[in-house]
Simulated scan of single mutants.
Amino acid sequence: MCAVAPKSMYKSPPPTKLRSDGAECWAARRVGSHGTGEKLRQRRCTRGGAARRWRRREAAAAAVRARKRGAAAAPAVGSGSEKARRGSGGGCRERLAGERWYDGLHKGYDKEHRARDIENNGELTPMRMRGHSAHDWPCDERYEPYFERLGLLPFVLQFKRHAPSINHGAMTALIDRWRPETHSFHLSCGEMTVTLEDMAMIGGLPINGEALTGTTVSANWRDRVGQLTGVFPEPPEEGERDSEKVLHHWLRGERGVVCPPDTNEVVVQQHARAYMWYLLTRVVFPDCTSNKAQWIFLDLLSDWDRKYSWGSGALAYLYRQLDEACRRKKGTSGMGGFVWCLQVWMWERMPVGRPEKNKTPPEGWVPHDGRYGEDPWRFPTVAYCWEMANVYTGSSVA
């Protein structure tokens, strides 16, 4: 027979309270052989990080009491001192004199952010957006069944066309409000950001499937390019670094022609892969140079029936480009990523300074070429409405 212990033996200590001076009293007073709460707290904070946390809390509480007595616990901003320390419940935060400090910001990002120069009346020039199209490479209808198997046919049908002119000034003003801490634009009306839905509705990219991640074997990558596209890149010259990239103009010169009509299926697939590689690395995944195609994206096109979440990869790549662009301050700075989609997103949601939107046809959305009936793969994306938009850049009219 088991004896049941009285409930009084299992009483939990009182909940944590905050003292009137703002310091956290995490060791409440307890009754028993352990003594008072102050002694228990001192015993718990005799080693390691606990001791440091206890000392910071005591320093913060002393600073609060000093301010209440009218003493200056820390020099005011702009007083000329090198550093000022301000206490908070969780510890001390360092602040450089003469600079404003905003809660929740990463110090490394905030120090290099373009907004700091704007706040200090610095002069910044508009960045160059690396957004391009693939209208200079004809797309053969024989490629479309393979693109449909990849789930990228809506993307190809829209972005093989001419891209609207980019308003570099407006895009730069938007990037100046990007915060890497939250991956969102901080505007006067609140926070906004690009989502997966935008990648699907504007870009026509699939958001279901495998993630664009993994290990890409770079050994003998030129041989793999030759197997997948039918053309072999030339090795780098002596002393040059092997970047695992090919120039766009080289790829367009080798494969940017209409596929011969009497070729077999293997050659058609090679032409299709080369075209898709060119389109993805020129429109969705361009770097700041925007003139090279990275090998890693061609390797993902080796299997036509393998479904990837291209929308997720494009969104993550765009976030990374924005994180880096908001800290670039040189006159020649630029930004890569899915710039075409970002500008359409800006026009759709921000009415200030945007061009006129093309009217939707009276009969509603129709396929691009009008020859395939109600095939959902051929319906335009949201970007189609802004295809012929006129953008006033300040210096010229596009």
Score class of each variant (00 low, 15 high):
Gly364Lys: 00
Met335Ala: 14
Ala383Thr: 04
Ser290Val: 00
Glu148Trp: 09
Asp375Cys: 05
Trp295Gln: 10
Ala60His: 14
Asn358Ile: 01
Pro376Lys: 05
Ala115Glu: 12
Phe379Met: 14
Arg320Gln: 15
Arg161Asn: 14
Arg47Cys: 04
Gly209Ser: 05
Cys326Arg: 05
Pro233Tyr: 09
Arg241Gly: 07
Leu228Val: 06
Arg255Ile: 03
Ala200Gln: 13
Glu265Cys: 06
Asp262Leu: 03
Ala383Tyr: 06
Glu238His: 06
Arg282Leu: 02
Ala62Ser: 07
Arg224His: 08
Gly48Asp: 10
Pro138Asn: 00
Leu315Gln: 02
Arg177Ala: 04
Arg52Glu: 15
Cys326Lys: 03
Ser12Glu: 05
Ile118Asn: 00
Glu387Lys: 05
Glu265Lys: 01
Lys17Asp: 03
Met9Ala: 13
Pro235Cys: 01
Arg378Lys: 15
Trp347Phe: 07
Lys245Cys: 14
Ala50Ser: 00
Gly98Phe: 04
Asn358Tyr: 03
Met388Gly: 08
Arg57Phe: 01
Pro367Val: 06
Trp386Lys: 03
Pro236Thr: 05
Arg116Glu: 06
Glu141Gly: 10
Ala72Asn: 11
Ala115Leu: 10
Arg149Thr: 12
Asp136Ile: 01
Val344Pro: 07
Arg349Gly: 07
Gly70Ser: 13
Gln269Val: 09
Gly48Ala: 08
Trp178Leu: 00
Gly203Arg: 14
Ser79Thr: 12
Glu144Arg: 15
Glu348Lys: 04
Thr289Asn: 14
Thr289Lys: 10
Glu237Lys: 08
Asn120Ala: 08
Thr213Pro: 10
Arg41Asn: 07
Ala173Lys: 11
Gly190His: 03
Trp365Arg: 07
Glu240Asn: 03
Arg282Ala: 09
Gly370Ser: 00
Asp305Tyr: 12
Asp299Phe: 09
Gly239Gln: 02
Gly80Tyr: 12
Asp223Pro: 06
Asn390Thr: 13
Ile118Lys: 01
Gly230Cys: 02
Thr125Pro: 00
Lys160Asp: 05
Tyr102Thr: 13
Glu191Pro: 02
Ser290Glu: 07
Ala5Lys: 09
Gly373Tyr: 14
Glu141Trp: 10
Gly331Trp: 13
Met335His: 05
Cys189Gln: 08
His113Ser: 14
Glu144Val: 10
Phe185Asn: 04
Ala314Ile: 04
Gly89Met: 13
Val344Ile: 15
Arg30His: 07
Thr125Ser: 12
Gly331Thr: 13
Arg273Ser: 08
Ser33Ile: 14
Trp377Phe: 08
Gly70Thr: 12
Ile166Asn: 00
His271Asn: 04
Ser218Glu: 03
Val231Trp: 15
Val391Asp: 01
Ser395Trp: 02
Tyr384Ala: 15
Ser165Thr: 10
His248Gly: 15
Ala60Cys: 04
Tyr319Cys: 09
Ala383Ser: 05
Pro261Met: 02
Pro235Phe: 01
Pro6Arg: 03
His162Tyr: 10
Ala84Met: 09
Gln294Pro: 02
Gly204Val: 08
Tyr10Thr: 10
Leu212Asn: 03
Gly37Ala: 08
Arg349Leu: 05
Trp340Ser: 09
Pro154Phe: 13
Leu318Thr: 12
Leu152Met: 09
Leu300Phe: 11
Ala274Gly: 11
Arg41Gln: 06
Glu82Phe: 11
Leu187Phe: 11
Arg320Ala: 15
Glu148Leu: 15
Leu300Arg: 11
Gly226Gln: 14
Leu124Ile: 11
Thr381Val: 00
His34Ala: 15
Pro362Lys: 09
Gly209Leu: 03
Leu318Phe: 13
